[in-house]
Design a protein around this nucleic acid. Structure first.
Length: 265
DNA sequence: ATGGTGGGTACCCCA
């Protein structure tokens, strides 16, 4: 049975609820994982999701910043909403579907501008967060043969996950310390990069384009900050992957676009 | 080399 999962950093779910419902109507994923909802739980637009057929919701919001949510056509149990780095941030939800499939939705700290943990506390936080993820991954491995991890991981790990490997080597999101750490997180639990399963590492692949470009499309200076990982037991079930680049050109867009992966489960 | 554009919130944080 086909199962489509989507991940999207929405940059305010309230402001862009019409883009969300358009996306759900046009692409109809089974599950949509959102990051940067920027909305308290009591102000989350539940009704719009229910009306679109997504009556099962997991919400972890906070005032003004961060926030993740999972909207699903299928029921699930909420497993966990961890407090990473003891910051009190809403950055992760873990759920389990009836067939035992685990799903993690992450929003990793962006890390500020300066890639020096001694001078920039936000970068220090990002490195500590990724370090905790690696330790968590190792512990998780034994319990979850079938699992999917998605989210805005705020790291573009491969050379062709950025428009210029050379020019972004010292730019937060693509520094060696971050890409090495993300590789450690990935290998700690044996995650498979589902996007790169479909697109060779030699081809450019982005999911984010800055708001600050004069013409994002012409410049095409993107980065792949959003990810879909699956456990090895699921690699044989991978069928399709779409980066919905068109969504960057919608009216009042997020700077991230949805990434969809379809598996035959 | 710099500053560019967007969020939320409350006069400044963050991406």
């Amino acid at each position: 049975m086909p199962f489509t999962i989507a991940t999207w950093n929405i940059n305010s779910v309230r402001l862009r609820i019409d883009l969300v419902t358009r996306f759900l109507a046009e692409h109809g994923p089974d599950v949509l994982c959102l990051q940067e909802t920027k909305t308290m739980d009591d102000a989350f637009p539940r009704q719009a999701f229910a009306a679109a057929g997504y009556g099962h919701l997991a919400i972890a919001g906070q005032k003004g910043y961060h926030g993740v949510a999972i909207a699903s056509r299928r029921p699930f149990d909420i497993l966990d909403r961890p407090d990473w780095c003891a910051m009190g941030d809403a950055r992760h939800l873990a759920v389990r579907f009836a067939d035992g499939l685990l799903l993690d939705n992450f929003y990793v700290p962006a890390g500020g501008d300066e890639p020096d943990p001694a001078r920039n506390p936000k970068f220090d936080h990002k490195l500590k967060f990724l370090g905790e993820m690696a330790a968590w991954g190792a512990a998780r491995r034994a319990t979850a043969a079938r699992a999917i991890l998605v989210g805005d991981l705020n790291v573009a790990p491969l050379e062709h996950d950025v428009w210029s490997h050379k020019q972004l080597r010292d730019v937060v999101s693509h520094t060696p310390v971050e890409t090495d750490l993300l590789a450690t997180v990935q290998s700690a639990q044996g995650w498979v990069d589902a996007m790169r399963h479909f697109v060779p590492a030699t081809e450019k692949l982005y999911s984010w384009w800055s708001y600050r470009a004069r013409d994002w499309q012409a410049a095409d200076r993107g980065r792949r900050l959003d990810h879909v990982w699956v456990t090895p037991a699921l690699t044989g079930a991978l069928r399709r992957m779409t980066v919905l680049r068109d969504a960057r050109g919608w009216d009042k867009p997020s700077d991230h676009v949805p990434v969809l992966v379809t598996l035959d489960l």
